[in-house]
C-alpha cells in the first residue's frame, strides 16, 4: 500500500472539490472493499476523501410513498429498518444474505453498489485482467471461472458483480442519486447503474469521475405484490452468491394472472440482471409452472456459459421457478432435471 493523503469532507461540495484537487483520489465511506483492494495493490489512491461522516445516513419517507436511503446508511441499519422490513422485505433479505454481521455494520449503501468483482484475477495484480489493467487480457476466460458470468459478459471480461443488495434494488426499480457538483445531480435506474463490460470492463458503473452516490430512492411498493430473495452459495453463510434471484410478483386477485413481475438475477452477470424477457412473457399470463419455466428459459437461453460455469443456468432457472412458485402459491415443477 502506497502512502496517501486523507481528507475528511464536511460537505458534498468539499468532497467533490477535494476529489478534483487530488488526482488519483478515491472517496471512502465504509471502506470494507476499498481498504481490502488497497491492501491487495488493486487500488492505489493518492488520497482518500472520507465521506463517511457526511449527513447521508438517514432513511426518509418520500411523498410518493417510497423511501429515500442515504448513501452512508449502513447495510445492517437498512436491513433492520422497520419500514424496509415491512415494505421491502426483499431488500432486507438480500442485505442479510450478504457478508457478515460485522461487515454489514460498516458497509454502506453507496459502497455496496460500488464494490468490485471478486474475480481472483482482478484481485491479483501479478496477473492479467482487463478490468484492473485495460488491455492486459482476461485470464479467467480460459482459467478458473466457475464463479464467473454467463450473461452479459464480453470477450474482455467475464467477471460478475458481487452485490446481493444491488440485485434487490434492481428488482425494486430503485434509482441511484448522484452528485457531481453544485449544479450537477442526476438519478440512474439501479438496474442500469452497473454497466456491461463490452470493450471497457474497467468501468463497472455509469458513475462519472468525481460523482458521489448520495442516496437510493425506492418507489412505493406495489400494493398487493409479494416478493422474495433467495441466494445459493458454497457455504451456509458468509459467501458470495453462486446465483441469486430477487422477484416481485403482483397477481390479479380476480383471475390469478400476473399483473406485473420484476425478476433480477445475481451472480450471473457483470450487473444485477433484470430478466426482461421473463417479465414480458409472464405479464398477463397465469403462473402455471410450465409457463413460468418457459418464461425463465427464454431469458436464460441467452446465456453463454464457459467450460466450468454452465451449472449457473440450471441453478438460476431452479431459483427463479421456485421463487415464483412460492410467491404464486403454485407447486414448482420438478427442479434440477433438464
Amino acid at each position: 500500500m502506497k502512502p496517501f493523503a486523507y481528507v475528511r469532507a464536511t460537505s458534498l461540495r468539499e468532497a467533490a472539490d477535494a476529489y478534483a484537487a487530488h488526482p488519483g483520489s478515491r472517496y471512502l465511506a465504509g471502506g470494507t472493499n476499498l481498504v481490502d483492494l488497497m491492501k491487495l495493490g488493486v487500488e492505489t489512491p493518492t488520497a482518500l476523501i472520507d465521506i463517511s461522516r457526511l449527513p447521508l445516513d438517514g432513511i426518509t419517507e418520500l411523498p410518493d410513498g417510497g423511501l429515500h436511503i442515504g448513501a452512508t446508511v449502513r447495510n445492517s441499519d437498512l436491513a433492520a429498518d422497520p419500514r424496509v422490513r415491512a415494505r421491502y422485505p426483499l431488500l432486507a433479505r438480500a442485505l442479510l444474505a450478504g457478508a457478515s454481521g460485522q461487515l454489514r455494520n460498516v458497509a454502506t449503501t453507496g459502497g455496496n453498489l460500488l464494490q468490485r468483482t471478486r474475480c481472483g484475477y482482478f484481485q491479483d495484480p501479478s496477473k492479467p485482467c482487463n478490468k484492473r489493467e485495460p488491455g492486459s487480457g482476461c485470464a479467467a476466460r480460459e482459467g478458473i471461472h466457475r464463479d464467473h458470468a454467463v450473461l452479459g459478459q464480453s470477450e474482455h471480461c467475464i467477471a460478475t458483480h458481487p452485490s446481493d443488495m444491488a440485485v434487490a434494488l434492481a428488482a425494486l426499480d430503485a434509482e441511484v442519486e448522484l452528485y457531481g457538483g453544485p449544479d450537477s445531480s442526476r438519478t440512474v435506474e439501479a438496474a442500469h447503474f452497473h454497466r456491461l463490460p463490452a470493450d471497457h470492463p474497467e468501468q463497472d458503473t455509469v458513475i462519472r469521475p468525481g460523482e458521489i452516490i448520495t442516496g437510493v430512492r425506492l418507489p412505493a411498493p406495489v400494493p398487493g405484490a409479494r416478493s422474495l430473495h433467495r441466494k445459493a452459495r458454497d457455504r451456509a453463510s458468509y459467501a458470495f452468491a453462486l446465483a441469486s434471484v430477487a422477484v416481485v410478483l403482483d397477481l390479479d386477485p380476480e383471475d390469478g394472472r400476473v399483473r406485473r413481475c420484476a425478476l433480477a438475477f445475481g451472480g450471473l452477470a457483470p450487473r444485477p440482471w433484470r430478466a426482461t424477457e421473463t417479465e414480458a412473457r409472464l405479464t398477463g399470463a397465469a403462473p402455471h409452472p410450465d409457463t413460468v419455466r418457459a418464461a425463465v428459459d427464454a431469458e436464460l437461453d441467452r446465456a453463454q456459459p464457459l467450460r466450468d460455469n454452465a451449472y449457473k443456468i440450471l441453478l438460476a432457472r431452479n431459483l427463479a421457478c421456485a421463487a415464483i412458485a412460492t410467491l404464486a402459491g403454485t407447486r414448482p415443477g420438478a427442479p434440477a432435471t433438464p
Partner: peptide, 25 residues
C-alpha cells in the same frame, strides 16, 4: 483448492475463496 494450470498457483488463496466452514454450516 485447485491449481491454476495457466499460472501455477492455488486459485483459492484467501479465506473468502477457500471456504472453511462457518458456524452456520
Amino acid at each position: 483448492s485447485g491449481l491454476d494450470p495457466a499460472f501455477g498457483d492455488f486459485a483459492e488463496r484467501d479465506l473468502a475463496a477457500y471456504h472453511v466452514p462457518v458456524n452456520a454450516d
